[in-house]
Design a binder for these strands. Structure first.
Lengths: 238, 238
DNA sequence: ACCGAGCCTTGATTTGCATCAAGGCACGCG
DNA sequence: CGCGTGCCTTGATGCAAATCAAGGCTCGGT
């Protein structure tokens, strides 16, 4: 990659720094250290459906979302895809590959036109050695990912789709637990949402239909209105 | 906790250090640093079925298995249990609670009489600040846990129990892929194994029966003989 | 040795979701 | 404009595993 003229280069760095600052990983880093991190970063643009990385590939580093969304998924030997999670700004992911795990354990694909910051592995490792506090943040971030995975694991096995969808809906609009009807705009296609929840799109569709029939929600395209938040909220606790 | 007489105390420290050394986390640590870690540790004995920690509790630190086994599981709102994973020596777990996640995200219970080393959180964090290399090992360990969780997530959704069991059996005895019949001694009850594989004990029992009927294995109590390793191995790749 | 509790097995039935199938709707492109 | 492709919905059917049920086995305790 060629380096841009000084002026543009520093602009780019500034933009990267600004995004990094949003991330929990770097929110408490000193400006000087942040600049150091930003130096080891590059930007990568992705079209909808473009692969960011594939399972088994050697990793170049980890990523911080700038715009768009990236889906992490695995495919079974017989070719079916299972979404593990979906990341959006300002989340970071693939930190897994910083240490012992050198290859990506799953695939990463853009769900829409996206930009991600690539944090170079080698340089970042050096930085950690000089900035131990940074490593605690990395641990924190991975802990969160791990915690979410544990939750997903339980949800997918132990709770049925009605409950998971109710939970998801209420998480999208915490305010709706009270009476007020809220309007949610889906950020992804229902197909992808179905994948996130671990079911097929048909099943998701039917579940929406059931909720609609019970007067819990109204659905119109990508917009969902929560009519009876209380009842919906009760649903998820099973 | 009272401190033992000097002689016994240092003996105890030595025993702890020896166990810590087994763990991937500390295998490359200098003896001096290892001693520092060991200082911040205590030992905890558990009876079969005794809780090491409960979901939501504030954590005291993380753990390294010395003897026995500990099951990490969650319970659904309606009371059903879902095993997340099972740890044995020399594995470490609950590193999650070192950083931002302060409370245990799941329950930990001894499956048999066990001893675990408790690594005190506060002291260990200090140590990390002085020994950044240590944090890379922590990251490595958590990465592995994360990778395994991702795999479990896919397996439980995307592969049926036959395949998972075949996979598990072959992992227990890598040698069996070749012709030689191998005898596996189950380390846990079949009930727990079922839980690990994400099914009920009835389903596991039936699957064993099917394998038995096909002449793939012979089962006698807690001992399983792999008769046709090749065929079993083929099973898992679906 | 006996008894009871928990574990394991096997059978019958249920069920939650996937799969297969078909039709409607919307959007981008020629 | 019209057409196709992909997304969404709804219906019919299939299936893996859960659940319910019952009997046998094992092992630790009195």
């Amino acid at each position: 990659m060629q380096s841009a003229p000084a002026g543009l280069g520093s602009l780019r760095q500034a933009a990267i720094s600004a995004t990094l600052r949003q991330s929990r990983l770097f929110s408490s880093l000193s400006p000087a250290d942040l600049a150091l991190v930003a130096e080891g970063c590059s930007l990568r643009g992705l079209q909808r459906g473009e692969m960011l990385f594939r399972e088994g590939e050697k990793s170049e580093g980890f990523y911080v979302m700038q715009t768009g969304s990236v889906s992490i998924y695995k495919v079974t030997p017989d070719g079916r895809e299972q979404i593990i999670c979906v990341f959006r700004p300002p989340e970071s992911f693939a930190e897994v590959t910083l240490a012992t795990v050198e290859t990506y354990p799953a695939n990463g694909m853009a769900l829409e036109p996206s930009q991600v910051i690539v944090v170079n592995k080698a340089r970042f490792r050096d930085l950690i050695r000089r900035q131990p506090e940074l490593s605690l943040h990395m641990l924190g971030s991975m802990s969160l990912h791990l915690k979410h995975l544990v939750q997903s694991l339980q949800d997918i096995k132990g709770r049925q789709i009605e409950h998971r969808l109710a939970e998801w809906l209420m998480q999208q609009s915490p305010a709706a637990a009270l009476g007020c009807p809220v309007e949610i705009q889906l950020q992804v296609s229902k197909k992808v949402l179905a994948g996130q929840l671990g079911v097929t799109s048909e099943t998701l569709s039917r579940t929406f239909a059931r909720f609609r029939a019970e007067g819990l929600i109204q659905v119109k395209g990508a917009s969902i209105r929560i009519v009876d938040g209380a009842k919906l909220s009760a649903y998820r606790n099973v």
